[in-house]
């Protein structure tokens, strides 16, 4: 009886590990989608209202709940309040510290931080194109993550279960 209980616990534990791994991947995908949405909101404010970045950040910040919205509003507040710091400095600093705790990969984190290099164009259409490029980049990353997740899902679950069974067999 104890053997059976132990076996179930080991296989269940291994499957749980697989689920945790997949959940992390899913969170990562969600994060990428959220950033794509954030850049789309910023682009809308720039394209349709022709507003400068602080205003766009404030409006987008109102629409995005949680930490990301707060960061956008903070950037807008500091820029409008005459902090003396550029958008690029504020963007890098605020997102830099937020991303340290995020589930994004280093490459993806760098892409978020590097967004500040894609603003400040004199031409409105040029600015829109660069924003669109950024949105597309994040949409593509999220899509790739989704496809990977679909493929990985079965393999991970199968592999974790098999490892669990293997442990059980070795221990028995």
């Amino acid at each position: 009886m104890l053997d059976l209980l132990g076996s179930i616990l080991i296989i269940g534990g291994m499957t749980g590990l697989g689920i945790l791994y997949l959940e992390k991947e899913r969170q990562q995908m969600g994060e990428l989608e959220q950033f794509s949405y954030l850049f789309r909101l910023l682009k809308s404010e720039i394209s349709f209202k022709k507003q400068p970045l602080p205003f766009a950040c404030r409006c987008a910040g109102e629409k995005i709940k949680g930490e990301k919205g707060r960061i956008l509003k903070e950037i807008a507040g500091e820029m409008d309040g005459g902090s003396g710091r550029s958008f690029s400095q504020l963007w890098k600093e605020k997102w830099g510290s937020f991303l340290q705790t995020s589930c994004l990969t280093c490459e993806e984190q760098q892409r978020v931080v590097d967004f500040s290099a894609f603003v400040g164009y004199e031409e409105e259409s040029m600015q829109e194109n660069m924003m669109e490029h950024q949105i597309e980049e994040f949409r593509r990353l999220a899509e790739r993550k989704r496809e990977e997740l679909e493929k990985k899902k079965r393999v991970v679950m199968l592999l974790c279960s098999c490892i669990g069974i293997l442990f059980v067999l070795i221990l028995l």
């Binding site: 720039i46 507003q51 400068p52 820029m79 400040g120 164009y121 409105e124």
Partner: peptide, 15 residues
């Protein structure tokens, strides 16, 4: 750039 809030596109008319 500072006066344009790093958004020169928004100040095209003024520029």
């Amino acid at each position: 750039d500072y006066w344009c809030k790093d958004s020169r596109y928004a100040y095209q008319k003024e520029l």
